[in-house]
Structure formats: C-alpha cells, structure tokens
Simulated assay, not measured.
Amino acid sequence: MALVKDSILLQLVRGTLGKQLTIYERNGQIIMAKKRGPSMKKPTKKQLEARYKMTIAAAYAKAILQDPELKAYYKLLAGPGQNAYNLAIKDAYKSPEIQNIRLEEGTVVVTAKDEFRVVEVDVRVHDAAGAMLERGKAVLGRNGVDWYYKAGYLPSGGKVVVVAVDLPGNETPRELKLE
C-alpha cells in the first residue's frame, strides 16, 4: 500500500488497473494498493454469522423500499452520502438496547433505546415457579425512551421478563428478579 502525495495524474483516477492495482480515496488521501482477491481461508463461525446477519438485513432493506412510508422515514434520517437502503440495513443489523428496568409503585418502567425506533415493549410477569401470571404491552412515555406497564401483581421470588422490539423486528429480552 502506498499513499500518494502530489500527483496530478492520480488525482482523477479511481478503481482497478489491469487486475493488479487498485486506487482509491479514504479520509482525503489517495491510496494505491495491490488488488485484493477472494480469501482462500475458510470463514470462521463469527464471519459466517455476520454474513447471515447481513443477508437478513439486506432482505429487510429491500422490503422497506417497497413501503413508501417506511422508505420516507429512513430517507428523512439519512445524512450526506446515505440513503434509505443504507439506514434500513443499519437498523436491521442492530437490536434495541434495554438500559434499565425498575419498579415504581406497581408499575414496571423500562428504559429502551434503539438508534432508530423501538416500536413495542412486551412485559411478562412470572411467579417463583416460572409460570406466567400476566402479559401485556407497555406504553411509551412522553420522553420517548421510558415504557410503562401497570402490573396487576408482582410476586416476590418471581421475575419480570421484558422484550424490546425495533422496527425491523429485532428483539432484545431482559429480566428482573423480584424480591
């Protein structure tokens, strides 16, 4: 790899020359490098998982382009050099994050974030034996981050299981033990 300083010829050239040399620009610098070919190594398990995840994300992004409302939503969030397809892939690739679960006077308060949007939070209350006592959807609070679920009964020794779901359908579960 070579960094090109002041070359009038290479200021305008980008791409591959003769299947041997690649010229590209990164962070404002022109770089010349040997053309890379496909790897001869067997992919690792993590690489295969990442490829599968990217395949799912790309399929989601293609489906999003068919829905005018969702396409407009992603397009609205796009910055310079981005488009709705790129952002849909980014959204599908990353699951929402549950930052906190707390109890406030019989109400389960869940702080859930996603780079784009959390669309629902499902709350399940289980007793000490693991049997589900109740289940319902939490309601989004005014701050756009906290979700509220009024529980009928919170048994000691039981647990509250919370699942946050984002726009592409990625789910993130988390549980809180009741004492």
Score class of each variant (00 low, 15 high):
118 V>S: 01
39 S>W: 02
22 T>W: 00
46 K>F: 15
9 L>N: 11
93 Y>W: 00
76 L>S: 12
98 I>P: 02
169 G>H: 03
21 L>R: 09
55 T>R: 12
128 A>P: 02
101 I>P: 13
41 K>Q: 14
86 N>E: 12
100 N>K: 13
19 K>I: 01
134 E>N: 05
106 G>E: 10
58 A>N: 08
89 I>V: 08
137 K>V: 00
69 E>L: 06
106 G>I: 02
97 E>K: 03
104 E>Q: 05
131 A>T: 09
65 L>M: 15
116 F>E: 07
99 Q>L: 04
30 I>G: 12
8 I>Y: 10
8 I>S: 14
162 V>R: 14
137 K>G: 09
97 E>F: 06
80 P>A: 15
36 R>W: 00
161 V>Q: 13
89 I>Q: 05
23 I>Y: 01
63 A>S: 15
117 R>F: 02
37 G>F: 08
58 A>K: 13
167 L>T: 09
11 Q>H: 14
124 R>G: 15
162 V>L: 10
46 K>W: 05
13 V>Y: 04
157 G>W: 12
135 R>W: 15
12 L>D: 14
63 A>T: 01
7 S>Q: 10
114 D>P: 08
87 L>W: 06
101 I>A: 09
74 Y>A: 08
87 L>N: 08
89 I>P: 06
74 Y>L: 04
149 Y>N: 11
145 V>E: 15
29 Q>I: 08
130 G>A: 14
97 E>Q: 07
164 A>Q: 03
137 K>A: 14
68 P>Y: 02
15 G>H: 14
111 T>G: 06
116 F>D: 11
170 N>C: 06
171 E>R: 12
20 Q>M: 06
46 K>Y: 10
43 P>N: 13
162 V>P: 13
79 G>M: 13
33 A>F: 00
90 K>P: 00
87 L>V: 01
96 P>Y: 00
95 S>R: 02
154 L>Q: 05
32 M>I: 11
68 P>N: 12
159 K>F: 00
45 K>H: 05
30 I>E: 03
148 Y>S: 03
52 Y>H: 09
100 N>E: 08
167 L>N: 05
43 P>Y: 14
26 R>I: 01
137 K>F: 05
118 V>H: 01
38 P>G: 15
158 G>K: 04
68 P>M: 05
31 I>G: 05
127 D>M: 01
104 E>L: 07
136 G>A: 11
99 Q>S: 11
163 V>C: 08
